[in-house]
């Protein structure tokens, strides 16, 4: 579905991504783990068109995305749940959701989707008229997910959905991610919480300072000794 080939992205003279290739197959959850500064967020931002690509290509179902602007990319069915949630704080929950559907014009479909999202996240319906900035961190993350779902994405990219959330809430969020995927949306997940991320992932990549160091199924990487030591905090025996 999504094919990234030799992607290089540079901020000024410094290369944040030094030639990355990865595949996101249809209907799967693919996870990208790595430390701070590895280039995970940059990768997502360059796929969605927020950051300019220096060289390499991004293909989505055969269409080249490099060089398109975010509007065109979002209209192809990709969406990004940005790092740190970034809900619109002084707008109501409902308005946030409606902005998520900005690219769509079918009023009835939008109304139906808002209903569906309130079924997935009943807590958001209770807070329908509340300003998004007054929600708790977990609720804001739910809203960010709901907002992204409003564009009816085929590929949903998430940048650290567990950031700053309590362990119980993280568990809930990951359950929701799994169910979103089961409903047919492909997920590209970027995480520092390697343990949780690898557990839900069908396939995973390890990113280090702009390069992919390792790949494999989520299970393989969970059992890999190096990964255990570097990201999961378990000592080698």
């Amino acid at each position: 579905m999504l094919k990234v080939r030799d992607l290089v992205v540079a901020y000024g003279g410094i290369e944040a991504l030094k030639g990355i290739s990865l595949d996101v197959p249809d209907g799967k959850i693919v996870t990208l783990i790595g430390a701070n500064g590895a280039g995970k967020s940059t990768l997502l931002r360059s796929i969605i068109g927020l950051v300019k690509v220096k060289s390499g290509s991004v293909e989505y179902n055969g269409d080249t995305l490099t060089g398109l602007n975010s509007q065109q990319i979002v209209s192809k069915g990709l969406t990004l749940v940005p790092e740190g949630r970034r809900v619109f704080p002084n707008l109501t929950v409902l308005e946030n959701l409606r902005i998520g559907a900005y690219m769509r014009k079918d009023e009835e479909g939008i109304a139906a989707d808002i209903k569906r999202i309130y079924e997935i996240f009943p807590r958001l319906e209770e807070r329908n008229w509340q300003m998004a900035g007054t929600l708790s961190g977990g609720e804001q993350q739910m809203l960010a997910l709901g907002r992204a779902l409003m564009s009816r994405p085929k590929l949903m990219m998430m940048d650290e959905p567990s950031l700053g959330l309590a362990p119980l809430v993280i568990k809930e969020i990951f359950n929701i991610i799994r169910s979103i995927n089961e409903n047919g949306t492909t997920v590209l997940l970027v995480e520092q919480n390697a343990n949780m991320a690898l557990k839900v992932a069908h396939h995973a990549y390890v990113l280090e300072t702009g390069r992919i160091m390792m790949e494999g199924s989520g299970k393989e990487l969970l059992e890999n000794e190096e990964i255990k030591e570097a990201y999961l905090g378990k000592k080698k025996k």
């Binding site: 927020l50 975010s70 979002v74 209209s75 940005p82 970034r86 409606r98 902005i99 998520g100 900005y102």
Partner: peptide, 23 residues
């Protein structure tokens, strides 16, 4: 209208608005 919502989204968070596909 949806234009007004787009204005407000830009006011609140330009990057998030752009990621929603708002020009």
């Amino acid at each position: 209208s949806s234009y007004g919502r787009a204005f407000k989204a830009i006011r609140e968070d330009e990057i998030a608005a752009e990621a929603m596909g708002i020009g």
